[in-house]
């Protein structure tokens, strides 16, 4: 059972990590705690459902359309309608603005797609594969592969592209970046676009493993936990935090009791934060409330 539980913990942890990476990127560049990140996951799943199942487009076309729409959504809605009008406001007003936007998105989803839960099929075979003592479905393997690939691509993007470098510079010091000629508003827009696409990929990958409904964004809070556990603002931290959270949740369900998961997460966090008060990879006291 141990190996089964561990493997699944890594799979779920990859999803947490993917969302947490988008969440962290957005925080680093715009100092916004993205409280509607779960809703980005939701719209990713709904876009795919619409393009692939309802419109009956080929999977890859539907997927491309989904990611494009998610990016456009990130720019038009998060960046233009919430982030920019509240740019000079503090962190909490932006959180409240995003929560307002999340409520609007959930309400619109209920009106457009209905309040029902949908079953989003997997593009791959759903027959389980047996590897030694472990059962796994192809979708779960895909999750791990895509997560690793995306993290690799992001690394290359941040290290070797102009935009990526500008984004890194902005997250270190917005003022210094401006002085060096970085166009901050392009960086913000790019961050919201990429961050929202990452969350939408989370929704596309996770959709076939659960039921898609307007409240599925609730799992967004886990990415917050993952990001903080790993050290707020640290991308490697978000990845490690996500996987650590996924594995520990599964171990608790396997060897203690599933209804103690939240309490066990509490104990885990207190332990980690007692040893390192700014998370696993966090730099001391950068954030300001």
């Amino acid at each position: 059972m141990l190996s089964q539980v561990l493997v699944n913990g890594v799979v779920i942890g990859c999803i947490y990590a993917l969302i947490a990476v988008g969440f962290t990127m957005i925080y680093n560049a715009t100092e916004t705690v993205h409280f509607a990140v779960g809703e980005s996951v939701m719209i990713g799943a709904y876009f795919l459902l619409t393009f692939w199942i309802v419109w009956d487009l080929p999977y890859l076309v539907a997927l491309a359309l989904t990611l494009l729409s998610a990016g456009a959504f990130g720019y038009a809605v998060y960046d233009r309608m919430v982030s920019r009008p509240l740019m000079s406001a503090g962190l909490l007003p932006r959180v409240v603005g995003l929560m307002g936007m999340a409520a609007i998105m959930k309400g619109l989803t209920r009106i457009i797609w209905g309040a029902d839960a949908y079953h989003l099929p997997s593009a791959l075979s759903t027959d389980p594969v047996r590897i030694g003592p472990i059962f796994i479905v192809p979708q779960e393997i895909l999750i791990v592969v895509v997560t690793v690939a995306i993290i690799g691509l992001l690394f290359l993007f941040f290290q070797h592209t102009k935009l990526g470098t500008a984004m890194r510079a902005t997250s270190q010091s917005r003022r210094a970046a401006t002085l060096m000629g970085v166009n901050i508003s392009v960086v913000f827009a790019a961050t919201w676009v990429i961050g929202t696409i990452l969350s939408a990929i989370g929704g596309v990958l996770l959709g076939p493993l659960l039921l898609v409904d307007p409240d599925m964004g609730e799992l967004g809070i886990k990415s917050f936990t993952a990001a903080v556990l790993g050290g707020f603002g640290s991308l490697p931290g978000a990845i490690v935090g996500g996987i650590l959270l996924g594995v520990s949740e599964n171990l608790v369900a396997g060897y203690l009791r599933a209804d103690w998961q939240n309490a066990a997460t509490f104990v885990l966090m207190i332990t980690v934060l007692a040893i390192r008060p700014t998370g696993l990879f966090g730099k001391p006291d950068k954030a300001r409330v």
């Binding site: 705690v33 809070i221 917050f224 936990t225 903080v228 556990l229 707020f232 209804d259 103690w260 939240n262 309490a263 997460t265 509490f266 966090m269 207190i270 934060l273 007692a274 008060p277 700014t278 998370g279 966090g282 006291d285 954030a287 300001r288 409330v289």
Partner: peptide, 27 residues
């Protein structure tokens, strides 16, 4: 418990505290 913690780290632990209280009340 949260004395050594600041900002988001404090937020996270208090968030979990809230969930734990609900858990205890339900059990």
């Amino acid at each position: 418990v949260v004395l050594p913690l600041r900002h988001f780290y404090l937020a996270l632990v208090t968030l979990a505290f809230g969930q734990t209280v609900v858990l205890v009340l339900s059990l």
